[in-house]
Design a protein around this nucleic acid. Structure first.
Length: 444
RNA sequence: UCGAAGAUAGCUCAAUGGUGGAGCAUUCGGCUGUUAACCGAAGGGUUGCGGGUUCGAGUCCCGCUCUUCGAGCCA
């Protein structure tokens, strides 16, 4: 009977068939130990020369790394290791002998591996990450489905820029001139919220930023919920409830994979409600207390400005300093409006403040969520579009949301790959998606 | 875009300005509990590209290309 390796413990002392690939093989005279993988896990086979036919013995000798095989044998417990199973092999059918495989069980450089991403994904580590990614996305879909949200897919081709055109990829669009690849589905999600109440988008987004860091890719998946009649505080309530749900569910269902990735689960287990909420003002106080300067690049080097001046956005060292005292995601809210996007609502009590919130993941993973209450006043929004030099005509449909039954509403955007990086404790975002697109890489 | 480091065998890396090596991978042989198995042998190189200094350059100098790491920008 054909079984998958992840279910192998249900078949102890039974004969089973495994269909998969040879991951590695060791031999010791009259014994061979082929390691088999089938996409769901790894299992070690034991081939004893006296227990198998001469043909099976010889065929095992021909196998190369990643050769595809159908192996039959009896499942047994490992003689020395707890909760580890082996396959006492009695039959082998060779499906295909692999050519010399470039990715050996030894170490490789990241560029070498990235060139062979289509093969690298077969590695147990990469497969574990992909399983965690799958669980994260499924948790997100289940959370929103079970909480009354409607999946509302935003278009990828867009005519306008949400926040300036310098970071947009463009392409020709028939007789209509340029189309841009979406860098956010938010504006469309807002239309969905006013149509359906609570919606979310989940799809690829694109940023033409020449950012060569461990936290950036040019094509990434973003999940953006948008809720009518939610204010900034309702928004933060949702963020912490949602994040805690996803993290706890992934720990529960993907413990084996996270353990394999050497993730410290005690740190993830602490991700439960409530999360710390601090205002931008309080965050600046922390920076001043810790004497973290604002660093400005100048013609002849760097200028260190202290104390940290109110109104400036935070960089990596600032996020680090703010988060290091907490072991949960930190929600920093009520930002200087100057530094924030045109669609964020101004604080009615203080026009210098925008009702935005950034969520900084612990352990130095930085921003994983950006959100806000949206500007719902027609005149204010028109003003903001003018201030940002954006073409009013492109936003008429967006402004209609403020003309026809405008309501307070809020939402946020979560970067899926940053979430995966954080939960798996990855050193680089390139491992968080099957095929990472970066400024210097578009293949394979 | 800026800053730093780097590019040598299929891979990961050594080599004081003086005959380019090792481990792994590959091929062959040995071994009845291996697990990044081990032991023995063999094959494998235009030292990223172009120029310069020198009796002599992988090594020093100049230019270019590419990679990695960091910063900015952001999710």
């Amino acid at each position: 009977m054909w079984v998958y390796i992840e279910k192998i413990s249900d078949f102890v002392d039974k004969e089973v068939t495994i269909k998969g690939w040879l991951y590695n093989i060791r031999s010791s005279g009259k014994l061979m130990f082929p390691e088999l993988r089938d996409g769901t896990g790894l299992i070690q086979g034991v081939v004893s020369k006296k227990a198998v036919s001469e043909k099976v013995w010889e065929d095992f000798g021909k196998l190369t790394q990643e050769s595809s095989v159908i192996v039959t044998g009896v499942v047994s417990k490992h003689p020395k290791k707890e909760d580890v199973y082996e396959l006492q092999v009695n039959g082998l059918e060779i499906v295909s002998i692999a050519e010399p495989y470039p990715i050996t069980p030894k170490e490789h450089g990241v560029d070498f591996l990235a060139d062979r991403r289509h093969l690298w994904l077969r590695a147990p580590r990469q497969a574990a990450i992909m399983r965690v990614r799958n669980e994260i996305i499924q948790s997100i879909r289940d959370y929103f489905y079970n909480n009354g949200f409607i999946l509302f897919d935003a278009p990828i081709f867009t005519p306008n820029a949400c926040e300036g055109t310098s970071t947009l990829f463009s392409t020709d669009y028939f007789d209509l001139g340029k189309a841009y690849l979406s860098q956010s589905g938010q504006l469309y999600a807002e239309t969905g919220a006013l149509a359906l109440g609570k919606v979310y988008t989940l799809g690829p987004t694109f940023r033409a930023e020449n950012s060569m860091t461990r936290r950036h890719i040019t094509e990434f998946w973003m999940m953006e919920p948008e809720m009518a009649f939610y204010d900034i505080d309702d928004n933060m309530d949702l963020i912490e409830d949602f994040l805690a749900y996803v993290v706890q569910r992934v720990i529960k269902n993907k413990r084996k994979e996270l353990t394999f990735l050497e993730r410290d689960l005690t740190k993830l287990e602490k991700i439960v409600k409530p999360f710390p909420r601090i205002t931008y003002d309080e965050a600046v106080e922390i920076l001043i207390k810790k004497d973290i300067p604002l660093i400005r690049k100048t013609a002849n080097g760097e200028e260190h400005i202290r104390p940290f001046p109110w109104g400036e956005d935070f960089g990596a060292p600032h996020e680090e300093a703010i988060v290091e005292d907490f072991d949960k995601p930190v929600m920093v809210h009520r930002w200087p409006s100057e530094a924030k996007a045109f669609y964020m609502k101004r604080d009615p009590d203080n026009p210098k403040i925008a009702l935005g919130v950034d969520v900084l993941a612990p352990e130095g993973f930085g921003e994983i969520i950006g959100g806000s209450q949206r500007e719902d006043n027609l005149e204010f929004l028109e003003e903001r579009i003018k201030e940002h030099g954006l073409p009013m005509s492109e936003f008429e449909w967006y402004l209609d949301l403020r003309r026809y039954g405008s309501v307070p509403h809020s939402g946020f955007g979560l970067g899926i790959e940053r979430m995966v990086s954080w939960i798996c404790n990855l050193e680089h975002i390139r491992e968080a998606i099957p095929y990472a697109r970066r400024p210097n890489r578009i293949r394979p």
